[in-house]
């Protein structure tokens, strides 16, 4: 990810508009905007660690479980807290598929793209999910209700193909089942 530093006018800094990423999105680096309570919990966790720098991945796991994702200002916060360059933190965040820098929808719909599911047609179900939700992989729907995500093998190969909505597993899914599954969650809201 490349960043463009914008002019440091007072307006830009206060509006959190001091950086633009490669996709043209403004990036807010203001760590003061992070939820104080969650930060306190994160601090407590970090302080309890013996080898803080070597535990960066564990700290990021904790951060993601608290905030739901790892926004840029949180990465900056962690980098300052354990004294590692922010570029290194971002390098680790972007390296591992488990970490996400984008907010997630209320429900995460995961489609298993493990081989057992693939040979049983999970790519077709994936396409149908994209069509039905009108969203690309790893993105949130406009209404903020769903995030669609392809995942590697849940290990329920006996039920292939498998779709997971949050922790609920749906096995032997057919293309025609997709709208039915999504409908259930839409109606709940």
């Amino acid at each position: 990810m490349y960043y463009t530093v914008l002019e440091l006018t007072q307006e830009n800094v206060e509006g959190g508009r001091n950086l633009k990423n490669a996709k043209g999105k403004f990036v807010d680096l203001d760590t003061k905007k992070l939820d104080r309570e969650k930060i306190d919990e994160l601090d407590e966790y970090i302080d309890s660690l013996e080898d803080q720098k070597g535990s960066l991945i564990h700290i990021l796991h904790k951060g993601q479980s608290l905030f739901g994702y790892l926004p840029e200002n949180l990465q900056i916060y962690i980098s300052r807290k354990i004294d590692i360059p922010a570029a290194k933190v971002n390098g680790v965040v972007s390296f591992y598929s488990f970490f996400t820098q984008e907010p997630r929808g209320k429900h995460t719909i995961s489609i298993c793209m493990g081989t057992a599911c693939f040979v049983n047609g999970s790519d077709k179900i994936f396409n149908e999910l994209k069509r039905e939700l009108n969203v690309e992989n790893n993105k949130m729907t406009e209404d903020g209700l769903f995030t669609l995500k392809d995942i590697r093998c849940v290990g329920a190969c006996g039920l292939a193909p498998v779709v997971m909505v949050d922790d609920q597993v749906y096995g032997h899914v057919k293309v025609s089942d997709v709208s039915e599954i999504i409908k259930k969650y839409r109606e709940e809201d």
Partner: peptide, 20 residues
Amino acid sequence: LGAGAFVCGEETALIHSMEG
């Protein structure tokens, strides 16, 4: 804990990942 990277099954990559 790992964080989802297939290459970490390779032992030198795994060791780097353990080092954060």
